[in-house]
Design a protein around this nucleic acid. Sequence first.
DNA 1: ATGCAGTTCCATGTTACATCA
DNA 2: ACTGATGTAACATGGAACTGC
Length: 216
Amino acid sequence: MEREVESLQTHSTAKRKKNNKSQNSRRFSDEQIKLLESIFEADSKLEPRRKVQVARELGLQPRQVAIWFQNRRARWKSKQIEQDFRTLRNEYDLLASKFESLKEEKQSLLIQLEKLNDLMGKTKVHEENMDGKDLEGSSNKDGDCETTEEKPSHLQSHKNFASDDVGNEGHEQLMNMCQVGAIVSPEDWHRFDSGGLFDPPRSSSATSQWLNFWIN
DNA sequence: ATGCAGTTCCATGTTACATCA
DNA sequence: ACTGATGTAACATGGAACTGC
């Protein structure tokens, strides 16, 4: 039955133009908008009975009320999309800047590591020249990066790299692993919850590739 | 139970017009 | 006065859900 009303209200473009010209204003009054908005705020959809009731209250056709709600939902949705877009963009900017600072931190740690390696290399040569003391007791033979003792954690991880126990290639690989660990733990990465794009892989070799992908 | 036509509602895109800078 | 941008009421269309047969 509402369809009947609607079809009676369906004009050709020409008819509509004529009709609109005869009306003083197409816009609803402030009063009408105010009530419609307050209803919309409570519920964005109208039950048919309520629609008829509201239409009667406002002196409008039920069809007009239905259309107003349709348009209002569409406007709300597009605003929502804009809002979501802004939120996502902000989150992305934040992540990007975190990533940049992590890269810088990594760079500075690498430099520190180089210096320490140089220093320890020189010390060892010196001690060998002195011909005598046992240095082996202090190095961790299993290559575990999470050694203890009272050094800063990021330095602890690289403690055993000066040792001869690890060959050059293994040395480099372990350095990479530990550097990744020093920059950020997997838990930290997962906290970002970025849907996998930024998530590092589980295996250490894949981790190196992953890191290189982002840095290079 | 199932298929089908008719109806209603809704989301989405478009049009026509009013208003404003 | 003219014009382009913007907001909005109304419309068109297609799909989903529901109903009666």
